[in-house]
C-alpha cells in the first residue's frame, strides 16, 4: 500500500474505535445530571464557589484591606450593622473584611498544601510501589515513623523552624510557604500509604504484564499505564483531604498566630477575651470555616461516589 492510502486508512480505523468505545450521550458527563444525582455534592460546589469568589473578589465587596492602616478605626467592638456587616474587632477592624481576606489565605494554603501533599505522596507511592525492594521498604518505614510522631506537633515544629529559612515567593510569602510545607508534610505519609496500596494493586494487573512483555520500560509503565489508572483515587484523595488541610491551617494559625489574616488566626489572640460580649468575632470566621469545610466534604464525598461507585455509602 502506498503511504497515502495508509494515511487515509488510519483516521478511518480511529474513527471506528472511537465509535466502538465512545460513551453513549446519556453516559457522558453532564453537570446538571450529576447535580441531580449528587445534590449534596452540588451544594458543596455551590458553597465552595460562593466562598471562593467572595474571597477572590474581596476588594470589590465593600471591604478594607486588614493589612492597611485604614482598617484600624475607632469603632471598637461594634456589632453587625449596615456599616459593618459582621461587626468590628477590638481594634476597630471590619470583621467582614477580615473574613473575606482571611478566606484567601485559608483557601490558598489549603489548596496548595493538598496539591503538594497529594502529588508528593503519589509520586513517592509510584516509586515505592513499582520499584519495590529496599526502596519500598525504606519509604514505607519512613512513613511509619512519621505516623508515630504526633502530626500536629510535627507541623507546628516544622512551621516554626522553616519560617525563617524560606524565601518569599511571588504569591506565597515565607510564612505561608512554611505553613504549606508543614501541613503538606503532615499529609504526605497518609497519601503515600493509600496510593502505594493502589499502585501495588495496579502493578499486578494484566495490562501491566502485557506492557512489560512488549518491552515497555518501567518509567513508561509507571507514567503511561499505572498513573492514569490511579488518577481517580488521586482526585478523590485530593478533594477529601482539602477540608482537613483547611482545618489544619486554621489550627496552626490559631495556635501559632499569623501575620496575614486567616480564619484560624481570627479565632485566636486578643479576640478570644471578647467572645462573650462580642460573639460576632467568633461566629463569622467560624461559620466561614465551617461552611467551607462542609462544602469540600460534600463535594469530596460525591466525587468519590462518582469516580468509584463501589465505595458509595461506606464510611
Amino acid at each position: 500500500m502506498s503511504d497515502a492510502s495508509e494515511a487515509v486508512q488510519r483516521p478511518a480505523s480511529e474513527t471506528l474505535l472511537e465509535q466502538e468505545y465512545a460513551l453513549p450521550p446519556e453516559q457522558r458527563f453532564n453537570p446538571l445530571r450529576w447535580a441531580r444525582r449528587e445534590p449534596a455534592g452540588a451544594l458543596g460546589v455551590v458553597l465552595i464557589l460562593i466562598i471562593g469568589i467572595m474571597s477572590g473578589a474581596a476588594p470589590l465587596l465593600n471591604t478594607t484591606d486588614p493589612k492597611s492602616l485604614e482598617s484600624f478605626t475607632s469603632d471598637n467592638l461594634v456589632g453587625p450593622s449596615s456599616d459593618y456587616y459582621f461587626g468590628t474587632d477590638r481594634q476597630g477592624r471590619d470583621v467582614w473584611s477580615s473574613v473575606l481576606y482571611g478566606g484567601r489565605i485559608s483557601l490558598k494554603i489549603g489548596v496548595v498544601t493538598v496539591l503538594v501533599g497529594t502529588v508528593g505522596g503519589t509520586l513517592l507511592a509510584l516509586i515505592a510501589g513499582f520499584v519495590g525492594g529496599p526502596v519500598d521498604f525504606g519509604l514505607s518505614r519512613v512513613a511509619d515513623m512519621l505516623f508515630a510522631v504526633p502530626s500536629l506537633l510535627l507541623a507546628m515544629i516544622l512551621d516554626v523552624v522553616l519560617v525563617d529559612k524560606l524565601p518569599d515567593l511571588p504569591a506565597l510569602p515565607a510564612e505561608e510557604l512554611a505553613r504549606v510545607l508543614a501541613i503538606a508534610f503532615f499529609f504526605m505519609p497518609g497519601a503515600f500509604r493509600i496510593m502505594r496500596g493502589s499502585v501495588l494493586e495496579q502493578r499486578s494487573g494484566q495490562y501491566v504484564e502485557a506492557a512489560t512483555l512488549i518491552g515497555a520500560g518501567q518509567f513508561r509503565i509507571m507514567l503511561r499505564h499505572i498513573l492514569p489508572n490511579i488518577t481517580g483515587l488521586v482526585i478523590v484523595l485530593t478533594t477529601i483531604s482539602l477540608p482537613a488541610a483547611i482545618l489544619t491551617e486554621a489550627t496552626l494559625s490559631f495556635l501559632l498566630g499569623s501575620d496575614a489574616p486567616s480564619w484560624g488566626a481570627e479565632l485566636s489572640g486578643d479576640s478570644r477575651q471578647f467572645f462573650k460580649n462580642a460573639p460576632w468575632l467568633a461566629i463569622f470566621p467560624g461559620a466561614a470555616l465551617a461552611i467551607t469545610v462542609f462544602g469540600f466534604n460534600m463535594f469530596g464525598d460525591s466525587i468519590r461516589d462518582t469516580l468509584d461507585p463501589r465505595l458509595r455509602g461506606r464510611i
Binding site: 461594634v78 456589632g79 453587625p80 461587626g87
Partner: peptide
C-alpha cells in the same frame, strides 16, 4: 452559627455603639 449571629447587635444601634 446563624442562631448565635442573631444574638449579635442589630442594625439599629450601630451609630450609638
Amino acid at each position: 452559627a446563624a442562631i448565635l449571629a442573631g444574638c449579635g447587635d442589630d442594625d439599629d444601634d450601630d451609630d450609638e455603639a
